[in-house]
Amino acid sequence: MAHIIVVGNEKGGAGKSTVSMHVATALARMGHRISGLDLDLRQRTFGRYIENRRAYLEESGLDLACPALCDLPEVAQESLRPGENMYDHRLSAAVAQMEADNDFILIDCPGSHTRLSQVAHSLADTLITPLNDSFIDFDLLAHTDASGEKITGPSVYSEMVWNARQLRAQAGLSAIDWVVVRNRMGAQRMVNKEKMERAIENLSKRIGFRIAPGFNERVIFRELFPRGLTLLDLKDIGVKQLNISNIAARQELRDLVKALNLPDVTVDF
């Protein structure tokens, strides 16, 4: 059975597609068989990233590891069982198609609440939730008082993850390993940053997730998208000397993949 990684967060701009592409490509480069599925059916940033990579590799003649890309199959209405949801059927069919030939399946969810996203979360063996280091993004996980110090209750996304955990438990499946990834953390020790750190640590103990380091804001991430490249590909395209920012970003990716603690994955880049 393929290990299913779901990258989810109901807020846009948290870095889901960047995390998805870099984790997927890192696994592919380490020799693991991995397929990606983009559930943002309108924007398709993750899907476009993989398509850009394929096109660039073909055009340049480079032979670099690339995640496979699977689309949701079309399903005839008459093939549905009574009361069965069309999107549930399409997602199940896509996962069944990928499971036999892959070590990992990575599903990138849209930055909004959809039926597809909800079902995908219940399939997750590992759930990655990228979060910008601000109380605006934190509000997706939990509500706080005006000081930002006291958590007053869970928010909509945490409740959805809780429901997904319940569904997995009822089906006799293993528990979701939920990893909240802190993106765009400032380098300086600021009051807001320290409050965020305390709030996330407190919440992790209350609702059960692990905390992992993510990516800081770097121009390189935006520059690589049109060619479908990642930080790990720079030397392969002729970049002989990485600058300090690129070296730091590569280390951030290494730390993230290590922190995910995925089965049979030894980080060697």
Rank of each mutant, 00 (worst) to 15 (best):
G12Q: 03
I34N: 05
Q166V: 15
V156D: 13
V75W: 00
A146V: 07
V23C: 07
T144K: 05
V119K: 14
V265Q: 08
S60N: 09
K193T: 06
M98N: 07
L203M: 07
K16T: 02
A55Y: 08
A124R: 02
D233L: 02
I34R: 08
F138L: 06
K11F: 04
W162Y: 07
Y56V: 01
E51K: 13
T126L: 09
G238A: 04
V257R: 08
I247C: 10
F209C: 03
Q118L: 05
A26T: 01
R254M: 10
A164W: 01
F209P: 00
G8A: 15
N9Y: 01
A187Y: 11
T266I: 07
L167A: 15
T266K: 14
R189Q: 13
Q241C: 02
M196P: 01
L80E: 04
V75N: 04
L127M: 13
L131R: 10
F138H: 02
M86A: 12
R210E: 06
G47K: 03
D125Q: 13
A14L: 13
S134I: 03
D38Q: 11
V265R: 05
D177V: 04
P154V: 04
G228H: 04
R53C: 10
G214H: 08
Q166T: 14
V95C: 01
V23D: 03
T45P: 06
V265G: 11
L91N: 09
L262R: 12
T126G: 10
P67S: 07
P154S: 03
R44K: 14
A249E: 07
P110V: 01
I237G: 05
L127E: 05
E10N: 14
R54H: 13
A169H: 07
S174W: 02
A248H: 08
I211E: 09
V156H: 11
Q43E: 09
I220M: 06
V257N: 07
M185V: 09
D233M: 01
N102M: 06
I50P: 04
D268R: 14
Q166A: 12
R42C: 08
A2R: 02
D145N: 15
M196E: 02
L131I: 12
T45H: 09
A100F: 05
P154E: 10
V180F: 04
L173S: 11
S122M: 00
P263D: 06
H32C: 05
E99S: 15
Y49A: 15
L41C: 10
S35D: 10
V19E: 01
